[in-house]
Amino acid sequence: MNVFRLIGDMSHLAAIIILLIKIWRSRSCSGISGKSQLLFTAVFTCRYLDLFTNFVSIYNTTMKIFFLASSYATIYLIFMKFKATYNRNHDTFRFELLIVVSVILALLINHEFSATEILWTFSIYLEAVAILPQLFMITKTGEAESITSHYLFALGSYRGLYILNWIYRYYVEGHLDWIAVLSGIVQTGLYCDFFYLYITRVMKGKNLTLPA
């Protein structure tokens, strides 16, 4: 463990909690892409199958359990409890495409052709693009509530901090997982224009309205 990965995990945890608070307090999931949340749930489910077989640490296990539980809780809130507030007509990104491409890539490019390793690789590729429906939805509606932009900032920062973690691990531990690194770079890259808008607007108290 290193400080970059710890802050990254805390940022990821904060994003998930911010989203749950937003939906629970406002009793609404308006502006939230249910498709992205479905993809994140698939990411955690495929990646954490080793929850009971591969014990890394108490921290690792508790975080995995929390991420799994919170992602299922989030889709429950979106598609069941507050489904009347879900903007289905704005959440129109073809996310099936993201799943198919991630499956094909995971079958072609992986570290080992085994079930758990291919599912892990699939979860890495899928996570890199899972935010696209949410970013697409914001460009479609042209704006985002400030709490949603804080959620996105925390979520985008987490993988950016992981890149620093991978640089640290490469030089300090000689550890390198180029599949995770390349996917993490793509994932963080997708947030670039959002980060620019967040820093130039939301940080100054303005709303996140995209130039139409």
């Binding site: 591969n54 890394v56 975080m63 991420f67 080992e112 390198l176 997982d177 599949i179 995770a180």
Partner: peptide, 10 residues
């Protein structure tokens, strides 16, 4: 190199 048997990151 990567130790695939133990993906120790979240």
């Amino acid at each position: 190199t990567v130790s695939i048997s133990k993906h120790d990151e979240l």
